[in-house]
Simulated scan of single mutants.
Amino acid sequence: MTIHRAVVARVQPLTATMTRVTLHGEGLAGFRTTGVGDEYVRLFFPHGPDRGDLSLPLSTDKGWETPEGQPVAPMRTYTIRAVRPEAGEIDVDFVLHDHGVASTWVAGARPGDVIGVNDPTGLYRPPADLAWQVLIADQTGLPAVARLLENTPDEVATRVVVELPDPAAIQPLPDTKVTWVYGGNGHGASRLAELVSAAIPPGTDMTGGYVWVAGETNALRTVRRYLRKELGLPADRFKVVGYWIPDADSWNERYEALPDAVRAELVALWDDPVDELEDLTIRYEARLSDLGL
Score class of each variant (00 low, 15 high):
Thr2Cys: 02
Ile3Phe: 03
Ile3Trp: 11
Val11His: 06
Val11Phe: 04
Gln12Leu: 11
Leu14Ser: 06
Thr17Cys: 08
Thr19Glu: 05
Val21Thr: 10
Ala29Asp: 15
Gly37Cys: 08
Gly37Arg: 09
Asp38Pro: 01
Phe44Val: 10
Pro46Ile: 07
Pro46Cys: 07
Gly48Thr: 08
Asp50Val: 04
Asp50Gln: 10
Arg51Gly: 08
Ser55Arg: 06
Thr60Val: 11
Thr60Pro: 06
Pro67Gln: 10
Gly69Trp: 01
Gln70Tyr: 03
Ala73Asp: 08
Tyr78Glu: 12
Val83Cys: 12
Arg84Gln: 13
Glu86Val: 05
Phe94Ile: 08
Val106Arg: 07
Gly108His: 04
Gly112Asp: 12
Asp113Ala: 04
Val114Met: 07
Asn118Lys: 06
Pro120Gly: 09
Tyr124Cys: 11
Arg125Gln: 14
Val134Lys: 13
Ala137Tyr: 02
Asp138Arg: 07
Thr140Ser: 15
Leu142Ser: 08
Ala146Pro: 00
Glu150Ser: 13
Asn151Gln: 15
Val156Asp: 12
Ala157Val: 09
Ala169Ser: 14
Ile170Ser: 02
Pro172Tyr: 02
Lys177Gly: 07
Thr179Phe: 00
Val181Ala: 06
Ala189Cys: 00
Ser190Val: 03
Leu192Asp: 10
Val196Lys: 13
Pro201Leu: 03
Pro202Met: 04
Met206Pro: 04
Thr207Met: 03
Gly208Asn: 10
Tyr210Ala: 07
Trp212Ser: 08
Gly215Lys: 08
Gly215Cys: 05
Glu216Ala: 07
Ala219Ile: 05
Leu220Ile: 03
Leu220Pro: 06
Arg221Glu: 11
Arg221Met: 06
Tyr226Arg: 12
Leu233Gly: 05
Asp236Glu: 14
Lys239Tyr: 01
Tyr243Phe: 13
Pro246Glu: 14
Asp249His: 12
Trp251Cys: 06
Pro259Gly: 12
Pro259Trp: 03
Asp260Glu: 15
Ala261Met: 01
Ala261Arg: 13
Trp270Leu: 05
Asp272Ser: 07
Leu277Ile: 12
Thr281Leu: 14
Ile282Met: 05
Glu285His: 11
Glu285Ile: 00
Ala286Trp: 00
Ser289Pro: 00
Gly292Asp: 11
Leu293Ser: 05
Leu293Asn: 07
